[in-house]
């Protein structure tokens, strides 16, 4: 339990998807205009990461990794399918995103139209594929650890985008130089947030 909590907290603050690895920047920058929309997208990312990471964990450990197929018969013990992991992971992610898209379109049409092109773009949000690849690289030992990592990184991404959206709502009242308005100042604010978050690096739980 302790260990799961460690992974969870670590993936929110120390290994934050946005500030430590700069993953998922495109939708992060473009959909952070208001707190409401960014909350919606953030929740979608938590949901998709929370599902894809454990599913990819099962696929990795029972189908792809070297010797993973030995549960079918001992003759498969030498089979190593890990070169397929990219395309399998992306297929899992794409189908999950399509599912989320259908659910959101059905139950929250207003959110659906305000997210626009960025909902299908969650499929190519590097934070999602990055989550599965980090899961593979860090060799978590149980599905609970993988789930806790997936949810934690989703929450970290959620915090980052809601934080940025809150700053952007306030920035509207300040006198930013005209050419820097909108995207320009957002980049610089994100850079400063990134520098601030670097203080979490190196902390050991």
């Amino acid at each position: 339990m302790q260990e799961l909590l460690d992974i969870f907290v670590k993936s929110i603050f120390i290994d934050n998807m946005v500030f430590a690895y700069f993953l998922g920047m495109c939708s992060y920058l473009a959909v952070s205009k208001t707190v409401e929309t960014s909350t919606g997208l953030g929740l979608a990312v938590i949901f998709v990461l929370g599902i894809t990471v454990p599913v990819d964990y099962l696929i990795q450990n029972y189908l792809l990794a070297k010797g993973a197929l030995s549960w079918i018969s001992p003759t498969f013990a030498d089979v190593d399918l890990s070169f397929l992991s990219f395309i399998i992971f992306i297929a899992v992610i794409a189908s999950m995103v399509q599912l989320v898209e259908m659910i959101v379109e059905k139950f929250a049409p207003a959110l659906y139209s305000s997210l626009g092109i960025f909902l299908p773009l969650i499929a190519v949000n590097c934070a999602i594929l990055g989550g599965s690849l980090f899961m593979q690289e860090r060799e978590y030992t149980s599905i609970w650890q993988a789930t806790s990592f997936g949810l934690g990184s989703g929450l970290g991404w959620f915090l980052a985008i809601v934080g940025l959206a809150a700053i952007r709502e306030k920035i509207r009242y300040s006198n930013v130089p005209a050419p820097l308005r909108g995207v320009g100042i957002t980049f610089i604010v994100t850079g400063l947030m990134g520098i601030a978050f670097m203080t979490f690096m190196g902390i050991k739980l």
């Binding site: 005209a178 050419p179 820097l180 980049f187 610089i188 994100t190 850079g191 400063l192 670097m198």
Partner: peptide
């Protein structure tokens, strides 16, 4: 972080 700020400055110059 400096990559972000560099891109921010490029946007500034372009606009």
């Amino acid at each position: 972080p400096m990559a972000l700020i560099t891109v921010g400055v490029i946007i500034w110059v372009q606009r």
